[in-house]
Amino acid sequence: MNAVAMTPPRAGKARSTRWIADGAFMTFVCALMAFLYLPIAVLIVFSFNDSRTLTWPLSGFTLDWYVKLFSNTALLEALGNSLYVASCATVLTLMVGIPAAIALDRHQFPGKAVFRRLLLLPIALPGIVTGISMLNMFRIFGFGLSLETVILGHATALLAVVVTQIFARLQRVPKSYGEASSDLGANGLQTFWYVTLPNIKTAIIGAGLLSFVLSFDEIPVTFFLTGRDNTLPMYIYSTMRRGITPEINAIGTLIVLASALLILASVLVLRDRSQRS
């Protein structure tokens, strides 16, 4: 009470101004969140709606679209193709990207600056350019287009992402760790396995997840490089020309769910590590 009584009038005014500012800020945050997540909420809600048309109000609850989804062999095949492409592209890009990042971080060699720029260039290149140029290359070398050519295309486009992420982490690992390891009798491979890898593990997991997701919903590069097989985004895109069906909402909902699980898994992995270390 005393403190309130002693508060000068100006402080009271400042408090109300502050209250307005807080309110405005909260409104902004809510609007932002709505902008980000409302479309996803709509997608999920309509995937359970029992009308073919996407109109308000909702007419009733159904799981029909999910049942239909799982009997749609073309869609399931596209999903399988996407998982195959994303997994292979992620593994391939990590296999090339990790050594490249280490080379950039630990070693001095002639042409290093050029090497680095060339590695990072694809991040700024539109997918369309990567797609067209790889298509040309495959044609010249007589490769038939297939999911494997898509994998090569994705791995190339994602390399910059992986290298950037892992290189940034490597920069934060003190050089003395590697020196201490070799001082204690380890050769280069042992140092990599026992010291470097554990310290960049989380960055590798993060880069891997990111690559997987980026590859999973990639369209431009896939469009140019795929043969007769379709990936899921390509399939959805092609059916969309006949209008959005609730079936697509259902597959969208499943993808949201899978992404949420992936995020949860990565959070768990990272938390586990920070507790142990």
Binding site: S176, Y177, E179, A180, D183, L184, G185, N187, V195, P198
Partner: peptide, 16 residues
Amino acid sequence: PQRRDVNMMFQDYALF
């Protein structure tokens, strides 16, 4: 370094 019978204590200790 790994083939020298000397060991080093680093300034930042470099403990893993």
